[in-house]
């Protein structure tokens, strides 16, 4: 394979994604648009924590750290999965280009992954901003953090891999529905927020729901992400990393297999061009 040629294609896809995402308005409005949702989400949860602390008199820096890091790192995952899952709907319904993309790029799956990279990069920025604003809000000194940069890079890379391939499954599903593409991306993001060790430990979930949460790489990833900026965070990093890598591999295989099947079925049913012309 011509690696240089392939990388150029990836660059063009990322450029297109960035243009599509950002060039509808002025830069400062775009930045405000990006920040509004995560910041207001942060303020909501931070206020709940503060209100609880004030009314109960219980201040727990470790819980505050857990809460804010969960909300902050979720931005990376949430933004990324939206990027992967939304594209089928967007290109088929809004721009009528899915069929042209389909015949001009070797694999639709790889195209979707490349399109999502920009969303993930924005997600990193949002995670850092939310972290830096959120921790002082709940009384946790950000200077206490000791970021392990190589581990953080690993966290973001492996986070991209597992969440993008998990999203590929959802994206494959959205091939079959012109109407529910946006719903699939929103619902899937919400599910990961609920089951992903974001606001509370998985053990707080009802017992019947816990196996589903354990099956997702999100919990291990989130724990390792917390550890990557705070070495005192009480987990076994080696064990967590091994489990995360194994789960990631499983989801990569599931993503590839499922999307290949969805692609074939969509082609069989003629769904690549199906549009409701909203």
């Amino acid at each position: 394979m011509d690696v240089e040629n392939y990388l150029r294609k990836i660059y063009a896809i990322m450029w297109f994604s960035w243009q599509e995402l950002s060039n509808w308005t002025k830069p400062h409005i775009f930045i405000a648009y990006l920040m509004v949702r995560p910041i207001f989400g942060l303020l909501l949860y931070a206020y709940i924590y503060i209100a609880f602390a004030v009314t109960s008199g219980l201040v727990d820096p470790q819980r505050a750290f857990y809460l804010i890091t969960g909300i902050a790192f979720y931005n990376f995952i949430g933004n990324g999965i939206y990027g992967v899952v939304w594209i089928i709907h967007e290109e088929r319904e809004h721009y009528n280009i899915l069929k042209y993309t389909y015949i001009s790029f070797p694999k639709l799956r790889d195209y979707l992954l490349a399109r999502s990279i920009v969303y993930y990069i924005i997600g990193i920025g949002l995670s850092i901003v939310v972290l830096l604003i959120g921790l002082p809000l709940v009384g946790y000194n950000p200077l206490l953090l000791k970021p392990n940069v190589p581990l953080l890079i690993f966290i973001f890379l492996i986070g991209f891999v597992w969440s993008a391939f998990l999203s590929i499954v959802m994206s494959g599903s959205s091939l079959f529905s012109s109407e529910f593409g946006p719903l699939i991306s929103e619902a899937f993001g919400g599910l990961l927020f609920l089951l992903g060790n974001v606001l509370f430990p998985i053990t707080s979930l009802p017992e019947w729901l816990q196996p589903a949460a354990y099956a997702l790489p999100m919990m291990d990833w989130m724990e390792l992400a917390r550890f990557s900026i705070n070495p005192a965070y009480p987990i076994d990093p080696v064990n967590t990393t091994i489990i995360l890598v194994i789960k990631t591999l499983v989801y990569v295989i599931i993503g590839i297999g499922f999307f290949a099947l969805a692609d074939k079925l969509a082609r069989d049913r003629g769904l690549l061009e199906t549009s409701l012309y909203h």
Partner: peptide
């Protein structure tokens, strides 16, 4: 009869 592409580009 179609305009396939990203309109703002």
């Amino acid at each position: 009869g179609e305009r396939a592409g990203y309109g703002i580009l």
